[in-house]
Computed example of a mutant assay.
Amino acid sequence: MRFLHSGDWHLGKTLYDVSLEEDQKQFMEQVHEIFGDAKREGKPYDALIIPGDIYDRNVPPAKAVSLLDDFLGRMSRDFPEAHVFILSGNHDGPARLGFASSFLEKSNIHIATDAAKTGDAVMVSGVAVYQIPFLLQTSFPDEETRTQQRLFERATEIIRKSHAEKHPGMPAIVCAHATVYGKSDGEHFLSVGTASSIDRELFSGFTYTALGHIHKYQQLGENGNIFYSGSPLAYSFDDNTDKCFLSVEIGTDTEKPDSVERIPVRTLHPLIRLSGKFSDFIGEDAHKKWAQYRDCYVEIKCTDSTLSENPKRALLETFPRILSFVRERSASGGGSDFEERRKLAMKQGDSEVGLFRKFVRDMHPEDDHTVSAEQLEEEIALFAEAIGEMRNGGAEK
């Protein structure tokens, strides 16, 4: 069996209120191309596995639903022999994702949202494929202990029993949406989103475990047969941008896959974070220096105190897709500690004008040559004049 593993699509996701629809269309188109190329080469894929977080929210926007509908329609039309496995993640609404699943089953599209069907295998080229949707405390009503660890113990117990009875000696693939760590590594049990971590030993004995939920590619397990493909896009500037699909081949070995190959994702608008002085990013020289990032989603971290009425607008000429502009906290504690310093200054009896003077000096330190000392004094004088007028007006009233 040969299949492609890709998780956490988060269709409908926006980044800083910017739609990622075109970016998501790009990686979905690449999936279609990979299947097409493999078919033409005479080594077709038997399946596509997407273990959860198909959508970014419980109630996905209409465009996200249309995006998935178009993709599944093309896959079914162009590769009718290929199976598509989809399960609900913690971001998905099971009832909505599972709509028409019985009908879609006839087209080899298997959508798992019901834990009660965990033991039902789909046979593909002599391999049994099991799906575990994101487990809730209500997934097994008769289960008294409902931690993620116990819920997954129950789910894997069901799969092992079913596999031993119906498909003994055959390779088995388990697809799940979870945070998996190893007790044997001495790692602490953690929580990511709404999913507390579970012991990877629960998946021992299966030929391959296809995981979703963690957005970074990872390989786990003593046999190296437990994988996160990671998300196909970076969905934050802190995310790892080395994205991939996993191309997996399963042979007759029930202990591990024959091969797992990483296929890099072609990203339409990569995420990039740049740091430097404001002046480094504006002007004709900056246009040339940063030309390679014009099609990237950009975050600028400004290391100086230069003021601009609308810094993002000023940076648009250099970075047409800038999403975020932030100032780094100064090492001296200024700039981002205004509130604490204001309280201290008031305790010390500083006047409004004194506070404003400190504010201005914070925003324009001595190494800032964009504003002259005379201009700063003019600003302070105007503020003092305004305060005086307010007080005089109050006294007259």
Rank of each mutant, 00 (worst) to 15 (best):
S125L: 03
I380E: 00
S231G: 02
E33L: 10
E299H: 02
E105C: 12
V122W: 07
Q148R: 06
S184L: 15
K216G: 04
A38K: 05
D242W: 06
P51Y: 08
G7A: 12
S125I: 01
Q148Y: 12
L316N: 06
D37A: 05
F245V: 01
I109L: 07
G98N: 04
T303L: 06
I380R: 07
S351R: 06
T267M: 09
P365M: 08
P365N: 07
F206Y: 04
D114F: 04
D56N: 13
H91A: 02
Y235D: 00
F189T: 14
A395K: 15
T306K: 10
A121Q: 02
P168A: 03
Y235L: 10
S204A: 15
T370P: 02
D53C: 09
P168R: 02
L316S: 14
L72V: 04
G126Q: 07
P171H: 02
M390N: 11
G12C: 04
E396T: 13
L48S: 09
P311K: 10
V65L: 06
D367C: 04
E374D: 13
A121L: 01
F319C: 00
I86R: 05
D367F: 14
D37K: 14
M346C: 04
V84T: 11
D70Y: 11
G354R: 01
I263N: 05
E379C: 11
G126T: 05
V174T: 01
L315R: 12
R361F: 13
